[in-house]
Design a protein around this nucleic acid. Structure first.
Lengths: 207, 207, 207, 207
DNA sequence: AATGAATGAGCCTTCATTCAT
DNA sequence: TATGAATGAAGGCTCATTCAT
């Protein structure tokens, strides 16, 4: 299964899972508020509910926390999407459903999305591609859904177009996170979903 | 007009302008490469071509540099847009033109866009809204262009829709900056502009 | 007899002996390589073949390990000397034999000798004199051998001279350990022994 | 001339010289007392009379202080020897004089000698050979003096013997430093010099 | 105006030691 | 007895900021 690349001194795998859970939860709260660089390892430890010494039993460097946070965020997004989405149906309705589901996840994880946008660059050269890969996977999911629609004849699009639209969907979902102060003034999130979906589909439909 | 809120010890306004120019230029290069927090005030001073002491004659805190950088970036964007765009025409063609022009600016300023996305949150509570305002202005420009088209009868859209589409355009322009590694694999930037424009307009056109 | 001053939580004397044996063996290897301060208690435990918790069942502080190591080294030196040396003979030949034997031990225990020279000062004020005493005993052994030769009329030396020569012998034996890189270039250890012995005796002989 | 390999942030060479002087002086006092590892960089800074920040303007790592200390000690030894010693004379008397002079230096620098013996191994792989070279030079000086005596016919010795005796002299000079508690009980340092000189020469003289 | 040496708060990280299991 | 997770004091080092020249 998933094999985290972050080394721990502690051997009990279940404990590692648990402690890192606490760690990530505390860290997300702090990163939201003050960002990665402004957050102290001591603060992370305290927010996680243990001492600084214990923190370093489960990671090697501060950056590992960021990696773990990013990793966890994407895993959560994927988990929630997998529950709601069925890629292979090939109907416009299923695409609508996927957009709606994804946009809702993005809304629920607004703060986490922001962290990803802002702190990703602080990852080391080794960790970065691993995290970016996960971001790419997100676009791939939508690309596949759209391609299913093309195959089923519901849509007529080139592969290039499929991919671009997939990227657009991904970004427009995240958009709520980093433009929320502007957007909230005019729409509720439900309205936002509805309107964006309409525009997206209108941009696609074969005439 | 523009009245910078950053205080300087030096009195000569022309010198302030000049030194801050050097400063911002050096800082942008460094921020691109390592980010705001990883960049040292000393490095900024050196990149600007003067000593750390001199740096502090023209700013009060490190954060001022970030503010100046963000400020400058938006000014540059606006300046270039103003040259190319005519808001009042009310033709689809002028909207196309505006999108094209804006997307090109965003491509030229890829790195600067990334800085804005990643470092903005490090601005102080006082400076932040000032910078965000400029971002909002960008959307407003497009909103106005689209509304011109509505007024001239070229398009039929609610105000809500106009605003959302404006935001979409702004974000899709920036998208090239933070997804370039993915997007470059499939399109040249010109193709990207063309395709996005097509999709945007298709999402709008009255049928 | 020997009554170690290092306290243990464990009661079984035989086990204490055994575990401390493992401990010292591992520690010597590590101290050779990285020195006392650079060596971690965890590393010592691992090298000894048990856990950090167990280590602390047999010592009270890290420094105890150093004490045990020093103690063991001197015991080994003495043990080997006792096998080879006969103090009371009073012949030049027996002195030669003693020097040869001692020099050979020093050569075999080069690394241990270095540890003694370099780490001794890290012992606590209580442990230090106890270890230094053992070093002094070494000189005393040679002093007694030389004095035997004086008593038997083979040599004519004051007590002062006897003691100084004893110290010289002790130090010249150790010299191979901390100047080996220089000395090895010119002599084998056997040549070294022979030459030093010749010079020592020449410095003593009644003319 | 001498070009220290330790990098400084400060540019003024004279200031570097001065501050490092203060630094080394303070450090020697502390290292004598508690050894390199037990001494804090903060303590070094305080002993030198400036802040921790300033300390790091003149070195890169703590180890640099040790290097500087070792370097300085050897330079001092050499400086004092150069004043007193004339290598080329080729007389027994000049050898005696050199021994006396060297032994006196070693007596004056007892504590420094101990530092060298105990802390040298804490130098990095790069710095170590540089320092060891200086130690070797010391032996070379005596070797040359002895060889002058051989050339002038005052002594009859092989090159091997010359070198060994040189090493013996160097070590016996240092011996006072690390065995002083034993030796002081029996001799004054002047007596020590006299006696050792006698033994050394007796071990050499052609019969 | 310009310089750069000085400062010290504060951060990341290590590691000896303890203690519940 | 043996284990190893937990602790937190302490240390090395950085860097924004100041100020005398």
């Amino acid at each position: 299964m998933k094999k985290s690349k972050v080394l721990a001194s502690v051997k009990d795998e279940r404990l590692i899972e648990k402690r890192r859970g606490q760690m990530v939860k505390g860290a997300v709260t702090l990163f939201k508020e003050k960002g990665f660089h402004q957050t102290t390892t001591r603060e992370i430890a305290r927010a996680a509910g243990f001492s600084i010494g214990t923190l370093y039993e489960y990671i090697r460097q501060k950056e590992d926390v960021l990696y773990l946070v990013c990793d966890t965020i994407y895993d959560q997004v994927h988990m929630r999407l997998e529950q709601d989405i069925d890629i292979k149906l090939g109907t416009i309705e299923s695409l609508k459903q996927a957009i709606k589901s994804y946009f809702k996840v993005m809304c629920d994880m607004q703060d986490e999305v922001l962290i990803m946008y802002q702190e990703t660059k602080s990852l080391s050269k080794e960790a970065l591609p691993y995290v970016l890969k996960k971001e790419t996977n997100l676009a791939t999911i939508f690309k596949e859904i759209i391609e299913s629609c093309v195959e089923s004849g519901e849509l007529t699009l080139s592969e290039q177009e499929c991919e671009l639209i997939a990227h657009n969907i991904v970004v427009q979902g995240q958009m709520w996170a980093f433009r929320r102060w502007e957007l909230q003034k005019i729409y509720t999130h439900d309205q936002y979903i509805e309107l964006q979906t309409k525009i997206i589909l209108q941009g696609i439909y074969k005439k």
